[in-house]
Amino acid sequence: MLLAVDTSGATSVALVDDAGATLAAASSDDPRAHAESIGPLLLQVLEGVDRSELTGVAVGVGPGPYTGLRVGMAAARAAAFALGVPELPVLSHDALALAAVEDGATLPLVVLTDAKRRERFATVYRALDAAGLPQRDGEPQVGPADRVPRLPAAEGAVDAALVGRIAALRRTAGLPLERPDARYLRSPDVTLSTPKRVLG
């Protein structure tokens, strides 16, 4: 059984079995409340669950808006450490590609998500891998909305249950793990911190 977390867009938490079937799922759409939401959602999904039955923590590593993305990654990393199980990184776009394919879309397709500043994160999928999951063609890119690859597009919010399913199916198929790093795809903005005032 895997715990799965993704905060690359919304805040999504799920529990899946070793075959990737969803056992529990909870999410919040508020794009500015990842730090708030992650606690109640984790507790909700884990309620009544024997922690010793968890064998991994799947986590979406983006791309996605950084501040929110990091909340889920930090929570998943810490939970994996606390449970003594491996962290299983999954590219968040892989879950959107899987959602599209399960919804009847055909490959090739491009997964698009909002990268702010009138840009999009884009990842192209052309084939299925050994686990029968959409396999990306190259790494995700960030760029202007009008210059994304001209392919049928899949968009939407990432469902942690699919992040969990991908991790479970890849593990069963013996496929290698994704890199654990957050996919920022941009250098950090070098804006010095503004002075903080503590009012009241």
């Binding site: 730090a35 606690g39 501040t67 990091r70 930090a74 929570a75 990393r77 810490a78 939970a79």
Partner: peptide, 23 residues
């Protein structure tokens, strides 16, 4: 808090992950 919001959120995310996993 107080502090840098984006920095604070990493610690809070991690702490909530620890708390949920351990109870």
């Amino acid at each position: 808090g107080p502090g840098l919001a984006g920095a604070l959120m990493v610690g809070v995310g991690a702490a909530k992950g620890l708390a949920a996993a351990t109870g």
